[in-house]
Design a protein around this nucleic acid. Structure first.
Lengths: 191, 191
DNA sequence: GTCTATAGCCAGATAGAC
DNA sequence: GTCTATCTGGCTATAGAC
């Protein structure tokens, strides 16, 4: 069952508004106005406001889950896997920064799909954690608390959406070089 | 003009609920119920729901601004200043993780104090940026885009509130040692 | 597929008794 | 300082004409 163009357009505009103002602050009337229609007409295309939110969030969450499974099956080093994960986050933040923002800020307002989303997210974070622990075990990473490493990486990667929209295409290529280097080797100059 | 104990208690409970559910999702009736009173009674202590939000956010924002001015007047090295800033964020996230969460998630819902808040935040981020640029100039930091460094540091520090509540006191002391090291020198083991 | 009209509910805030 | 009652207006969603 494919999604009509009109429905796609509604979701696209909704994502923009939700990112700017927050899910709860955007009414169906606001959304309809941005699409030059009336709120009641929206319901010919979508079932509920929550359906829009679920669609936006699950699209992003499923892409992360799928990509993570591919990266895990890749038998490269821990550092190489981390580099791929950093690139994945930059890629998604660049392609769909609205979606990424909404995942971070409004997942709490999911109802029907809340459990499914939380499972996808746990699965992703657990896989990330395993990669880090393996890196410590085989001496690719420093012997510090693996949770602290997980946190510093995920907090940076999960907030890329705040920062990437300001960047041009050229900057993105530069970021793909600089960010793995900074996160792995730090910001301090070593003589 | 000092704040009554009852008002402090209202703000304290509000901060807890706002963090858990988001500012817009918590009604005055919800807040009143958590305080075992009726919504109308709240208005003997506060002027509006927005006043509670402003109070929570500005308390945190002003503490950052004040501390930043002290750190800037300190004539130590760039790395030493960054270490103090990292400790400042850990300190505030530990003391007031609700406030920090609300600053990040709900500043967008400020009305009267929005401009003041944005000024405090800009001032803080600009000072942070100047410290980084100085560090690059005098070869303490790597010669990469200073905005990228600012972003990696701030994104980690600004999301400490998500992570610190799970930590015990002992872990906090460990974090004050490990986090500056990880951010400055990276996570990779150097042989 | 879009509209007008509206149901049913909940929000922030106020008036006034006690 | 807390209460009950209520105002005013916003919300999501539906009914039914065109």
């Amino acid at each position: 069952m494919s999604i009509s163009n009109r429905k796609k357009e509604i979701i696209r505009i909704a994502a923009k508004l939700f990112k700017e103002q927050g899910y709860r602050a955007v009414s169906m009337r606001d959304l309809a106005k941005a699409l030059h229609m009336k709120a009641s007409s929206l319901y010919n295309h979508i079932q509920s406001k929550e359906e829009i939110l679920s669609h936006i969030i699950l699209e992003v969450a499923e892409e992360y889950a799928t990509s993570m499974r591919q990266i895990q099956n890749n038998d490269s080093s821990c550092k190489q896997k981390l580099k791929l994960l950093i690139e994945l986050h930059i890629h998604i933040a660049n392609k769909n920064s609205h979606g990424m923002a909404i995942v971070q800020k409004d997942w709490i307002h999911l109802k029907k799909e809340m459990e499914y989303y939380k499972n996808l997210r746990s699965e992703y974070e657990n896989s990330f954690y395993e990669i880090i622990k393996e890196g410590i075990r085989n001496a690719e990473l420093k012997e510090v608390n693996p949770e602290t490493i997980l946190f510093t990486l995920l907090s940076t990667l999960n907030t890329l959406y705040l920062w990437i929209p300001k960047k041009t295409e050229l900057d993105i290529e530069n970021l793909k070089k600089e960010l793995p280097m900074l996160l792995l080797l730090g910001i301090a100059k070593t003589k």
